[in-house]
Simulated assay, not measured.
Amino acid sequence: MSYPPQSPPPGYQGYPGYGPPPDHSNATLIMILGILSLVLCQILGPFAWVMGRRALNEIDASGGTIGGRGSVQAGYVCGIIATVITVLSILVIVVVIVATVVIGVSADTGS
């Protein structure tokens, strides 16, 4: 008696131990966002940070069936650095504006 062919269950990755696992679907995107956030547009930093954290959690929960941890971690760290630089830049701008206003007000009052 022959049985009809069956398709593998959803999420089936094949036999373990035969080559590296496939990279996370967003690994390259996260790395590109992280690099661009450092080089061109720091507003992309929080996106790389959040997406990177989520992807790292998914990679850790996969039990080794999802790879690309190095690319995701690189984008994640670049996103953190770019976000910190952005926040510090905004703080410096606010301090300069407040100092300018305070100096301008004290110059007008003659103090």
Rank of each mutant, 00 (worst) to 15 (best):
Y15D: 08
I93N: 11
T86R: 14
S25Y: 13
G70L: 12
S62Y: 07
V95T: 11
P5M: 08
Q73C: 01
G104W: 07
P16W: 07
A107K: 13
G67P: 02
V94S: 10
I80C: 11
V101R: 10
G19V: 02
P16H: 04
I80V: 12
A55K: 03
E58A: 12
Y18Q: 15
I80P: 00
I66K: 02
T28P: 00
V98R: 10
A82I: 02
I30A: 03
A107F: 07
I85F: 12
T100Y: 08
I85V: 14
V96H: 10
P22S: 11
L29Q: 15
A55M: 02
S2M: 09
G52A: 04
P46E: 07
G11Y: 01
A82C: 03
V84G: 02
L33C: 03
G14T: 01
G11D: 01
G75I: 02
G11H: 01
A99N: 09
G70E: 13
A48D: 06
S89I: 00
Q13E: 13
P10H: 03
I66W: 05
L88V: 12
V92R: 14
R53C: 07
A61E: 14
M1S: 13
M1A: 15
S111K: 14
C41Q: 15
V87W: 10
T28G: 10
N57G: 15
R53G: 15
G79L: 05
A74E: 13
P46I: 05
L29Y: 08
I43D: 12
P4G: 01
G45A: 06
Q42L: 00
I81C: 08
T100D: 09
T65R: 13
Q13G: 01
M1K: 09
G52M: 06
Q6G: 02
R53W: 14
P9F: 07
R54F: 00
V92N: 12
V94N: 09
V94T: 10
Y15K: 11
I85D: 10
D108C: 07
M51T: 00
A99Q: 10
Q42M: 09
V95Q: 10
P22T: 08
I97T: 07
V50Y: 15
P16N: 04
I32N: 12
L91T: 03
I81T: 12
W49P: 00
A82H: 03
Y15R: 13
R53D: 13
F47G: 08
P21M: 03
A55N: 03
I97Y: 09
L29M: 11
I30Q: 07
I93D: 12
Q42C: 02
S7G: 07
L40D: 11
I97Q: 09
I93Q: 11
T109Y: 12
L56G: 04
S37N: 04
S2Y: 08
G79C: 03
V72A: 06
L38Y: 00
I85K: 11
V50M: 11
H24I: 06
D60F: 01
M31I: 00
T65K: 12
A48E: 06
P5G: 00
T83V: 02
